[in-house]
Amino acid sequence: THHSSMSPEEFISRIMEAEPPEIYLMEDLKKPFTQASMMMSLTNLADKELVLMISWAKKIPGFVELSLADQIHLLKCCWLEILMLGLIWRSVDHPGKLIFSPDFKLNREEGQCVEGIMEIFDMLLAATSRFRELKLQREEYVCLKAMILLNSNLCTSSPQTAEELESRNKLLRLLDSVIDALVWAISKLGLSTQQQTLRLGHLTMLLSHIRHVSNKGMDHLSTMKRKNVVLVYDLLLEMLDANMTGG
């Protein structure tokens, strides 16, 4: 079935099925952390999660119908936001903690050992509290994550060729499907029409906060790489470079 003919319910169940499995860091964490050991654990986990993120994106109905150039560009623009929203979701029931994975949980204070990371941890914890206050539901979470992916480069590229225009139109229709799905998920919560509208507004406004934290995180990671605190390699390096070379 094409996503345009799917009901919002069907669309949500497809993106729920696309959810990546729980991922473990699988390292012996030596505490207390050093700046290098914490950065290494964070980047190792990110690299593993990125591989699963690509498979996740491909399972979102309609994503693989976009041009390959758009698929690449979207993922390169939003990967850290997606990782951060996943982190927020895992941490939502654990106030004051960031649950990077079931075997890698950090307290706010542990951020002290990495220069400049406490500020980012605090912004992530603040976003997590906000989602906790809103009692974010799983259906809403999966819609928000798809919205981040599809919205990530809408305002940074303009289609030139006919092929680019076609892909852009597909992208816009796909975003319509995701917005419809989110509206449907909110409508299931038994709120008044006005409360539903407000909830949609509050949830989508949080995405601008996540974009902001992601930009901070991207700068932080590139600084850590430049100072040789951590060796960034493989897929993570490719995704980081895309954000640092204006690409």
């Binding site: 591989v51 690509i54 498979s55 491909k58 399972k59 390959l68 698929q71 690449i72 993922l75 390169k76 493989d234 897929l235 490719e238 995704m239």
Partner: peptide, 13 residues
Amino acid sequence: HTKLLQLLTTKPE
């Protein structure tokens, strides 16, 4: 070929 491109173009398992 970049790793991203490679992951995007391989058929799902």
